[in-house]
Design a binder for these strands. Sequence first.
DNA 1: TTATTGCATGGCT
DNA 2: AAGCCATGCAATA
Length: 798
Amino acid sequence: MLQELCNFLAPSQMWSTPTVHMPQNVADRKDSYVKSWRPPTGQISSQWRQNHQLWNMSTIQADLQQRLAYEFDRPSGSEKLPPGRTFIHAQEKKSDDMHDRPTTPAGMGQIIRDRYANGLGQQTSMDPTHSSTPYQREGPNPNSLHDPSHHVGESDPLSSRKGIISDGGSTVSTGFKLDSHHPSILKDDAASTLPTMGGYTITNYPPVPGRSDHLRIIPNNPQQPPTTVPLSVVQKQFYSHSVIEPNYQAQFRNGKPRMDPKARSELLPRYWPRITDKELQHLSGDSNSVITPLFEKMLSASDAGRIGRLVLPKKCAEAYFPPISQPEGLPLKVQDASGKEWVFQFRFWPNNNSRMYVLEGVTPCIQSMHLQAGDTVSFSRIDPEGKLVMGFRKTKTQEQIFRQEEPTKPANAAPNLPDVNINVTAPDSSPNSSLVRPNKVNTENKDSSPVEQAASKIDKGGVAQKEGPGTVRTSPGPVKRKATSIGPKIKRFRIDNEESMELKITWEEAQELLRPPLKAPSVVIVDGHEFEEYEEPPVLGRKTYFVTDQSGENHQWAQCEDCSKWRKLPIDALLPSKWTCSDNKWDPERMTCVSPQEASMEELAELIPIKAGAAKKAKLRMDTDSIDVSDGLDTLANLAILGEGESLPSQPTTKHPRHRPGCSCIVCIQPPSGKGPKHKQTCTCNVCMTVRRRFRTLMLRREKRASEKESEEPPRKKEQGQSSESPQDPLLASTSPTSTPQKVNGNGDDAEEAVEHSMASSPMKNQIDLNIQPEREDEQSPKSDAVGAMRLPRENAA
DNA sequence: TTATTGCATGGCT
DNA sequence: AAGCCATGCAATA
């Protein structure tokens, strides 16, 4: 294959195409070139057509290798790149001024070829689907040289596998967000183009002992020692990308890579075209033409304004529009989806030492499409004609964002097309957009989420566009300059919000909670690539601690959800989020909660990050039939309320064994002096709500266990239950019998109602007091934080 | 005066 | 920190 690749990329072949545009400065570009210029049909494409399969495979290999190589390339990585490696990473190699390097379409193609021609198989993309081919309409096309087998997810045996980790989630169709970030189930032994790299298996199943923030890199060559790579590094490759651009999955909804490879590698993600098959079909009509989406741009206020100038992203212009050397540029014909042809002046302004590209005369087009700021226009290329075709997508109104339950509908075509509603589609049509869906309708910006605010801006901006000729302002008079910038605001808000939703837990934190699905993976070997194929997405698992004992044996410790006893498990044990002693199939002697713990808490405290003091307390709790409400999901919930920027610290606080620095629970956030702001009983802040929620959970579990015990054992001293188990101590006010768990139905809602009722109906009694002093609380209650968070006001007054 | 044009500025990535 | 790009604005028509 390597040989084939080399042949394929033989310079003589590569440079023989007459249309090759030699590297040159922009200033040297001749506008006369434009006369014969056609949008880059891609010199690569023609070769690709002959070698698409090879190309595709090579690209996948290169992609996988590059990911690894990238890790190793970085100083933070624990491995260094083998000698001789000279990777060029698209993101690393910050795209310098395009003037100084091949900027023409052919030139860019050359860049890519160059990267392949060096024998390293390096492409700038990180995505296997980077090997995209121009979109081709559905249907038989005997003349087509496009083998559909290269279509990722369609018949590509590699990418059609569910659960295979793939950049951008392009091959992950589970809809489970985290899976596409999860690098742990990817195997790569593709070394044909990079022999020095060898093959590696990336895994964190099980996590690296003691290094939960690392991934294991296992060379497929058993003679090479495994090593680890910081997750934070991997995260950059697998996580951030997917988070920031989850929408890109939409590009592959039907398993087709459609955008031009250059777009992915050279353009900022916000310019990546998002276009569906249907839209493309509309654009291409009934011909056998091949459409390659090139880029898209969300219209700014300026773009959509009456000035009629559409600022083009520099790289897009230089990559896909004819090269121009004079500021005046040249007229450019662009066809819209209805077949109407528009002529814009494609030109540039000198700007600093660079250029600013604009399309002039777009007003009629914009108006005919009823576009406003915030809407998106896309540019595609139709081959073999080489025509530029323009699509558009209306942004969502606020109302539509809130009504996102309905599946979004693509639109990138003429408004007269039957299945295109110019008001329907959103910039964010990814399945992940639901993650940012506001859960309440709030028409005021005040207290609304960023997304809501963004939506509001869209709406207002859109209206403002129509308000008066020539004005794009959303408010009269001088406003802060960028305040009228609709487009970027939208993008920023959207991304920020996604991040805020996604990154409330860090990658490392999420990793700790992730377990592979219970169903064992099957190993699939495709063309020498070994993949572990998971049918299901990763699951949130119970947190365990990996330890190496004195004998050097590795194992892990997990805590039973019911009895809180710690159980020793094999190193490869994978626990679900709900795990109890009865699930301890590895140790039949300790398969029940009545079995004693194998090691004392003091011993355990030396092995796993629990404090000895806490260990004692935990032991006490166990003895007194206390409960531990922490599991993976609880942890996740805890993390979720931490807010941005908080990572899960590894060390417990001195106050609460189960709390970590940064914990924002009611106990931890209280200033030591107790002088902090008081929470009212009606407070609905995160902390208060969380406390209530936890309390409900607590009550539920207690109730459950109480009833279980009742059924198991003869009834015993119920009244005495107040000693250690009753929520009256120290949970609730003891003055109301209605607050005891015994009075609460097993139904969770009832439990919560009971709590809330007691809180609401009797402000002075039975209330959950959030205004407590942690130290005192800690002294007085060995219970869990959730328990300890609820106190009597009279105690607080002391 | 108004619209257009070309450039400059500065926020943001 | 460089460079992109949204848009302000002066010059011009």
